[in-house]
Nucleic acid binder design. Sequence first.
DNA 1: GTTAATTGTGCCAATATACAGTACATGTGT
DNA 2: ACACATGTACTGTATATTGGCACAATTAAC
Lengths: 260, 260
Amino acid sequence: MSKAPEKSTETPAVRVDSTLSKGLSILETLAGSPKGRGVTELSQILGLSKSNTFRLLRSLSELGYVRMSENKAYSATLKVWQVGQTLMDNIDLPALCAPHMLKLSQEFGEAIYLAVPEGLSVIYIDKLESTQPIRSFTPKGGTAPIHCVGTGKAILAANYEQLRDQLKGNLKRYTDNTITSMQRMDKDMASARANGYAIDTAEYRDGIYSFGAAILMPTGEAIAAIGVSVPEVNLKGNRAEEISLAVGKQAAEASRMLAS
Amino acid sequence: MSKAPEKSTETPAVRVDSTLSKGLSILETLAGSPKGRGVTELSQILGLSKSNTFRLLRSLSELGYVRMSENKAYSATLKVWQVGQTLMDNIDLPALCAPHMLKLSQEFGEAIYLAVPEGLSVIYIDKLESTQPIRSFTPKGGTAPIHCVGTGKAILAANYEQLRDQLKGNLKRYTDNTITSMQRMDKDMASARANGYAIDTAEYRDGIYSFGAAILMPTGEAIAAIGVSVPEVNLKGNRAEEISLAVGKQAAEASRMLAS
DNA sequence: GTTAATTGTGCCAATATACAGTACATGTGT
DNA sequence: ACACATGTACTGTATATTGGCACAATTAAC
């Protein structure tokens, strides 16, 4: 029983440093164990020898990833979380989305935005100018209310559970089309979620439509949105639908990039 | 300053599995590198041989922690983040805080609460009953507005930047003492932050004072708060101050436990 | 356009490293 | 009091990891 009973049938099986692999497994397991786990317990779960497990745990402790509580139970420290956090903080959203935004820009020639949520607003962190003579003018760094622009609504739809409560009573009207009732908003968000994109029918600025789709974490949480802003006069035929679908597709691809 | 090239003179130096250590270093470095890094670059940064670095990167890729972009640059995937996230989700706050809550309970005999933020409210996820004949009655699972109870105010103070905007116009009055102006709230929060605890002077329920202090992540963000709820009649002499300091101390200790 | 310098990647032999097994000490439950 | 299970320490051996070198493919220099 020196080797695995069933030898893997096909894979040329890239050699994976076993210590690293085992150590990470331990970390993963521990991350999912609120009460911590003992050496023996862990060794059984992972199918490792007790001494091996112990050694790995000691190394991880030394490196600060694992701690031993009074009760001799090992549990993961917040260091993994911190690393994950700096990873999140260092995600270069503009770089990640640039190719997808560019594609949209080339396809439609309209202004393309990249927005992140901030409370009940969105902040535009990147923008490609419209090539059309008629321009909309929200500058990079500008903000907009989350409930009435394409990017905002896309984010709102994805994180609706979390945001709905705060939204109540804050549906400020900007144009005749602004959605100001929670009932209508609920329906709008439901369809946005179903479609994978959100539409602002001149709900923020008169005559300006916008289409947005969210960049989603693996958990489903939206961390940003891509949007296309279009003067109403430029929307002939089924242009609106074309743009909506294209935005949805590009955002989905960007999300896939994120998750890898 | 990671490890001295010359053999370390004093430390008995617990043997640390080097592969694991190196692999985690790579992960940490990559997490802080938005654009990704090349093999050679990484090997220089970490002082490893190129082949070693390459092998580790390949292993990490195989394990799903690292990806190689088209441009031959390796970057970390969101897997670390996911692990960190499940870690966060699995933190057993009641267990973590139990000893500290118990200490407070024994010391003062009043009702002790453990609360987590939820939008502009707090939810009480754990509670130790008062031993006094006079009881306050918020049950476990109950909620309270964040701006007028001890636990809530403690959390609010810590996360003020993030929450202040949403708070505007939502400072609902519950008692004569409820703080309803943002100016007063700003000052109150500033002093709460300075003190390390927050005081509710019967701002939610008439005759009920409460004292709260936040459980903080290493980043300074509050994820919960411990609180003591006390009928005004039980506050003689400098009892209020005693309780405040004790709550602050216990919460700080719980935060230290969190961070390890 | 040719050279020169870097890059990522594959290979291999040497040895340092991580491994299993065993032993012991402490603690837990019966 | 016992037996049992747990965390920890030790040690010799074999295996897995390592550094050095070589190669291919880009990229930079000229």
